[in-house]
Amino acid sequence: MNRTPRIDRGAIFRLAISIGCLAVVTPAGAQTTTDASPYYIGASLGYTHDSNVNRTRPGSEVADSYLSYGVLGGVNLRFGRQRVFADVDAQVNRYQEISGLNNKSYAVTGGLDWETIETLSGTLRYIARNNLATFSTGAGGIFVSDQQSQQFAATARYGLPSQVTLDIGYDHRLLEVASASDRDFTQDTVSAGVRWAVGGKLTLGAGVRASRGEQQTVPVDETRRRDIDLTATYATGSFSTFNARLSATKETHSLATATDISETTGALSWSYRPTGRFSFNLSATRDTGRESTFSTATAGDGSTDGVAVDSTRLGTTFALDGQYELTGKISLNGNLRQRKGTLGSSGSETFRGYGVGFSYLPTRSVALRCSVGREDRSIGGTTAYEVTITGCTGELTFR
């Protein structure tokens, strides 16, 4: 736990400088999408109780509470057809009893949405996170460690007059685990595809992805992955949207003990907002653990311990998220998760989690959020750990 993962602070610093420079050179007439200030800065203070901090088997749990305090800030500027944005949240987490778990966590997101006068547009994204995460071992055990993930993505789109769009993309990923360097992983992916708008509601797509990566085992495991994707989006209006992806996936490894994959993967989701106050999202995903972990890091899954690490070779995840705005200042939320998958060439893992919470925003500058979540994880049919996490966080921001 005391070992610190290699953190590309230079990349984070360069991102901050670039965003700052863009903000400085933004013309005086630059406008945001609303009348609100495009900048914000603030501080947060939270208290959390964890019933099983070491993620041990039932009967050997050790509970502890920790205090989290930190800073947050961001910018969201639009100038002409371009938009630059960034959000930073850095926390210091101090446990009352087990000082070995003390850590510093952060989440940095930044990027640029750009568009030309004609039909060419694209995005640049950079995401960096550091947090405690839970990992499965091949022997059926569990350990907790600092995890750092970084992701840089660039996409470009060219729209043709016939409602056909051409897409290309590049994605670089980095995953580092402080207590298990043999799990450190890098991957580069290039993609290309085409989308066709069929009428006003349905969009169909087809594309290919090619990935090459390295896991720092001894010897190094070189991985190659190929995907052929078929996608569809059906939007019935502002109330309901369906997204689907079906992929033929093939992944090979240079390490003889690693298992190659030749499977059908994919994802299906439904976003529904029947009223102005109530909304939910239902999704199902079948993919490798690495893909699921990075998707979680990008989108967030509401898990109780930060970015949910998926250790499975190939797994299926079902998720449900809902939110209800009780009043203009109070909202309720809930989530459910279940994941089942294989570990290596044998064995299986099952993860279940659920949580509820509420948010109270009495003013634009003050926010209070509380939640309670429950997780249980089993490996090979035997319970690996069970945990309940309860906490509240207050934020004060200036815009």
Rank of each mutant, 00 (worst) to 15 (best):
L174A: 15
N52W: 02
R377C: 07
V190S: 13
F185R: 10
R225P: 00
T382Y: 01
G46A: 14
S283M: 15
P58T: 13
D171L: 11
R273M: 08
A28F: 13
S331G: 08
L22R: 13
Q151W: 15
I98D: 04
T249L: 15
T304S: 08
D171S: 10
S238I: 04
L45C: 07
R183Y: 06
Q338R: 14
T217Y: 00
T383F: 00
T252Y: 07
G322E: 09
S371D: 14
Y354D: 11
T296Y: 14
A178M: 03
A156D: 09
K340H: 13
I168K: 06
R273V: 09
R277H: 11
E115L: 03
G200F: 02
R290N: 14
R173D: 03
R364T: 13
G373Y: 04
L112Q: 04
S240G: 13
D113Q: 04
A43I: 05
E251V: 10
R94S: 13
P58N: 14
V53W: 02
E395H: 06
A297N: 14
N102V: 11
A206Y: 01
A139G: 15
L101H: 04
A156F: 05
P5C: 04
R337Y: 11
E251K: 15
S121E: 14
V108L: 07
L175N: 09
G213R: 00
V309I: 15
W196V: 13
T304E: 10
A308Q: 07
G289N: 02
G200Q: 12
R55D: 10
T109V: 13
N243F: 08
L336W: 05
R313N: 09
L230Q: 03
S191W: 04
K329G: 00
S51W: 01
A267Q: 15
S254Y: 06
D305H: 07
V25F: 10
D113P: 03
S105L: 03
T236A: 12
E325G: 14
G207M: 05
T134R: 06
A153V: 15
A258I: 09
A319G: 03
F242I: 10
S121R: 15
R374I: 05
S331F: 02
L268C: 02
A210S: 02
L320I: 04
S191H: 01
E222W: 03
Y234E: 10
Y158S: 10
Y234G: 04
S37I: 05
A210Q: 06
T397D: 02
S65G: 08
R277N: 15
L175A: 12
T327I: 04
G42T: 06
E386A: 15
Y234T: 10
L332R: 01
T363N: 03
D8R: 02
Q187R: 12
Q163G: 06
F152K: 07
V198P: 01
V218H: 10
Q82A: 00
I261P: 00
E118S: 11
S371P: 01
A30C: 10
V75C: 01
T56N: 08
S145H: 08
D287Q: 07
A156V: 14
I261E: 04
L204K: 01
T390L: 08
S247D: 08
A90Q: 07
Q147I: 05
